[in-house]
Design a protein around this nucleic acid. Structure first.
Ligand SMILES: [Mn+2]
Ligand SMILES: [Mn+2]
Ligand SMILES: [Mn+2]
Ligand SMILES: [Mn+2]
Lengths: 145, 145
DNA sequence: CTGAATTTGTAGCCGTGGCTACATTTCTTG
DNA sequence: CAAGAAATGTAGCCACGGCTACAAATTCAG
């Protein structure tokens, strides 16, 4: 922390920032596969227009990102057809949703309004380690009692 | 959330993702001004080499980012000299540190190991609203009792 | 004071994720 | 079935934050 006049080890500090940069690399993929999975479950399919609408982004941007997700083996997409998840993509979606829900539940239990909880969780979810996730779950249980 | 077979309003969902994108825009600035402030307080000055070392990034990257921070009025930097914060930059640093510390303290109180708490906080800090921050502070107090 | 080491700057490259504008394909509707 | 509408694709632009390689300035020793 170093709120007192000491600077922590430089390499350790650098490792933290590297971790954050790492999280940001997978963040977009996580949000997309989670949304694609939602759309398939509810609508029967995931289409570019709806992804664009729900991500708040142009359809051109969605196209580019879906292309990358396909290169990375997370989705399958053929021209002018709807988008599917690979097994790997589905696994990522499940994992992302799990983290998302734990964070939202915790925030609500902590007294945050549902709207704010949802907003903040959308960012926080990508930065919570398994260890922290476990602690949040446990704490949610305790608070609710 | 929508764990049950319902999709939330598209515009609302889009607003959440926009918020996250917004947070990511200011994130780099926040981490840099906070670190610059730390270095000035402890070392008497902030230099490019040390920023690079502590951010885990090349000095060329630091240079580019410092240039942007200067354009945005957060720092003052003259060629081959050390880097200073403007009043606005200092305010941002103080605010960033405040959020950082609240998140770290909460995580530790929640039972997360100090190392993990520091790592996760470095990312989480940029996604917690004031409302959530207040709830985390309150909760930290309660847990510690 | 001079030469070497260190620090800083800069040029130019890359991938990502934004956008608009326009082209093409598919779907729907009369 | 043919138009027109809607969806999808693509090209080309931008800013950001990474990088390496090289140039220039500053600092430090001898
Ligand atoms: Mn998210
Ligand atoms: Mn983030
Ligand atoms: Mn941070
Ligand atoms: Mn921080």
């Amino acid at each position: 922390m170093t709120s007192s006049s000491e600077l922590e080890n430089a390499a350790l500090q650098a490792a933290k920032f590297e971790r954050v940069r790492e999280a940001h690399k997978t963040e977009v993929a996580e949000d997309y596969v989670e949304l694609i999975d939602d759309l398939i479950n509810v609508n029967g399919e995931a289409r570019v227009v709806e992804l664009a609408e729900r991500m708040g982004v142009s359809h051109a941007t969605v196209n580019k990102i879906v292309g990358r997700l396909q290169r990375e083996g997370l989705v399958i997409s053929r021209p002018y057809r709807s988008i599917f998840l690979t097994d790997e993509g589905r696994e990522m979606a499940v994992e992302a949703r799990r983290r998302h829900e734990i964070v939202v539940k915790f925030l609500k239990a902590a007294g945050v309004s549902p709207e704010t909880a949802e907003i903040d969780a959308e960012g926080i979810e990508h930065h919570v380690s398994d260890e922290t996730l476990d602690c949040l779950s446990a704490l949610t249980g305790k608070i609710e009692i």
